[in-house]
Amino acid sequence: MSDLDKALADIFTIRSQIAAGTAFRGYGPAAVAATGGLALATAILQFLWLDDPTAHPLAFFAGWAAAALVSGGMIWTEMQARSHRHHSGLADVMIHQAIEQFLPAGLAGVLLATMLLKFAPETLWLLPGLWQVLVSLGIFASVRSLPRTVAFAGAWYFFAGFGCLLLASQSHALSPWTMGLPFVFGQLLMAAILHFASGESDVEE
């Protein structure tokens, strides 16, 4: 390795270490709250227009997949703007770190949905609750770079997920409310936490 390559590698390592110890301020309360509103709108639309979600699982999950994509786009757009405003030269490293923390849970949710749809469609009633549990794991994985109080949002999704699994186990039915309401309250809670967080003093050093 040449001296230049070694110097560049050292700079990258230092930047990564600094980013790992810095509170990530890229998640904006407005975008997170808006995703809660989108979850509520999706639940209402499915309640009005999808007579029997259990009989039409593809339509049910397609609606939520579309809502998730739009929500991701909203958060990504605000994340880019806020990260470059608050983290300047470290913005790209901080964004990469944030995605890396949440990616395993997100990928697990996609693969789990694909597997159940293809090989065990009779168990699709499990998916809403399992998705909420996976979101909680993604939030807990991100606690080290976010306000520590986001753990309350992680706990909400964790218990809401198991609550939804318990409710759905009685009828094995899909419901827009057991999918939507936990995300409405969870995203609004997350937005409130981000809004009222005191900054670095609320983040683990």
Results as ranks from 00 to 15, higher is better:
Met1Val: 07
Leu4Cys: 00
Lys6Glu: 15
Lys6Tyr: 03
Ala9Glu: 09
Ala9Tyr: 00
Asp10Met: 11
Phe12Lys: 14
Ile14Cys: 05
Arg15Ala: 12
Ser16Tyr: 02
Gln17Asn: 13
Gln17Ile: 00
Thr22Glu: 09
Thr22Val: 10
Thr22Trp: 07
Arg25Phe: 01
Ala30Thr: 11
Leu38Ile: 10
Leu40Ile: 10
Ala41Cys: 12
Ile44Asp: 04
Ile44Pro: 06
Leu45Glu: 03
Gln46Glu: 13
Trp49Ala: 13
Trp49Tyr: 14
Asp51Lys: 13
Pro53Arg: 08
Leu58Ile: 10
Phe60Trp: 05
Ala62Leu: 10
Ala65Asp: 06
Ala66Met: 14
Ala67Gln: 13
Glu78Ile: 07
Ala81Tyr: 05
His84Glu: 11
His86Met: 01
Gly89Val: 09
Leu90Gly: 03
Met94Lys: 10
Met94Val: 01
His96Tyr: 06
His96Glu: 14
His96Met: 09
Ala98Asn: 09
Ile99Met: 14
Ile99Thr: 11
Phe102Thr: 11
Pro104Phe: 04
Pro104Lys: 01
Ala105Cys: 06
Ala108Ile: 08
Gly109Glu: 07
Gly109Met: 12
Leu111Val: 12
Leu112Cys: 08
Leu112His: 05
Thr114Asp: 08
Met115Arg: 12
Met115Ile: 13
Leu117Asn: 08
Leu117Pro: 00
Phe119Ala: 14
Thr123Glu: 13
Leu124Phe: 05
Leu124Val: 02
Leu124Trp: 08
Leu126His: 03
Leu126Asp: 03
Gly129Val: 03
Gly129Cys: 07
Gln132Asp: 09
Leu137Ala: 15
Leu137His: 06
Ile139Cys: 07
Phe140Ala: 08
Arg144Tyr: 09
Ser145Ile: 15
Thr149Lys: 15
Val150Arg: 01
Val150Cys: 04
Val150Asp: 03
Ala151Tyr: 01
Ala151Trp: 13
Phe152Ala: 13
Phe152Ser: 10
Ala153Gln: 00
Ala155His: 02
Trp156Ala: 02
Trp156Tyr: 08
Tyr157Pro: 00
Phe158Asp: 06
Phe159Ala: 11
Gly161Gln: 09
Cys164Ala: 14
Leu166Asn: 03
Leu166Lys: 01
Ser169Tyr: 14
His172Gln: 10
His172Gly: 00
Ala173Tyr: 09
Leu174Trp: 05
Ser175Tyr: 03
Pro176Ala: 05
Thr178Gly: 11
Gly180Phe: 05
Phe183Gly: 04
Phe183Ala: 12
Phe183Tyr: 15
Val184Lys: 08
Phe185Glu: 03
Gln187Gly: 03
Leu189Pro: 02
Met190Thr: 11
Ala192Pro: 06
Ile193Gln: 06
Leu194His: 04
Gly199Cys: 01
Gly199Thr: 01
Val203Cys: 11
Val203Gly: 05
Val203Leu: 07
Glu204Gly: 12
Glu205His: 12
